[in-house]
């Protein structure tokens, strides 16, 4: 019989439940053939404007839907529904991020097989969403030119969990004296080799390149799963 304090090894990820659920979601998405992209950024970086323009364009060629996370209000979902895409708002109350369980609940009654693309707009926050896998294939981090070139240095973790950076509001770059090369340099210091798009959802500049990339990635993913099936 042992007595007194002793150390027992456990080795358990403490967001294990989220990780397991995210993995199950990812498998579900792949089986259904829907390509899932999440968007993270600070509040006001233009996630909704980016998504709005993307949904309007994609809705003409693809079956597309979106989940939109916010602390409160249905405003973003209403705005995005004008594209004709199916949109569901997730209001988190006081929670500062989306997690895999919220995604699963929001998709409960959806037939994912009917979708080509699903976008997930996270709550505007550059800190907390970094810890939570949502089962997405790609994570875009958006950063607007009005935020300053050194944002990635202040929030390296979110840039490290993302796959692609989208520099938004590029039409304002000159007005706010945004140094594009300096911004790219800081992004690639934090995440060497990171793919960067420069877009304006307002003028449409750079959006086509971004969409083409998404469509190529989806085609690759489908080709890959057809091979393994």
């Amino acid at each position: 019989m042992m007595s007194g304090p002793r150390l027992v090894e456990v080795r358990q990820k403490f967001l294990k439940q989220n990780d397991l659920l995210a993995r199950a979601l990812r498998e579900w998405f792949r089986r259904a053939g829907v390509y899932v992209v999440s968007l993270v950024s600070s509040p006001g970086s233009g996630k909704t404007a980016f998504l709005e323009r993307t949904l309007h364009d994609f809705a003409r060629r693809h079956s597309v839907a979106a989940l939109v996370g916010d602390l409160a209000t249905e405003n973003d979902a209403q705005r995005l529904r004008r594209s004709g895409a199916r949109v569901r708002q997730i209001t988190t109350g006081t929670v500062c991020h989306l997690d895999a369980a919220m995604i699963e609940r929001a998709l409960e009654d959806w037939r994912l097989e009917e979708l080509d693309f699903l976008f997930i707009e996270n709550v505007g926050n550059l800190v907390c969403p970094a810890s939570y896998d949502l089962g997405e294939e790609l994570r875009f981090v958006l950063m607007s030119v009005t935020e300053g070139e050194d944002k990635p240095l202040k929030y390296p973790t979110i840039f490290n969990t993302a796959d692609v950076t989208v520099l938004t509001k590029i039409d304002l770059a000159t007005a706010v004296e945004f140094d594009l090369e300096a911004a790219k340099e800081t992004i690639r210091a934090v995440r060497p080799g990171m793919l960067i798009f420069e877009v304006s959802a307002k003028t449409g500049a750079g959006m086509i390149e971004c969409w083409r990339y998404l469509e190529e990635r989806r085609n690759e993913a489908r080709a890959g799963s057809a091979l393994s099936a």
Binding site: L7, V8, V10, R11, K13
Partner: peptide, 8 residues
């Protein structure tokens, strides 16, 4: 992000 051990 993991629990490595418990002191019990």
């Amino acid at each position: 992000m993991e629990i490595a051990a418990l002191e019990v």
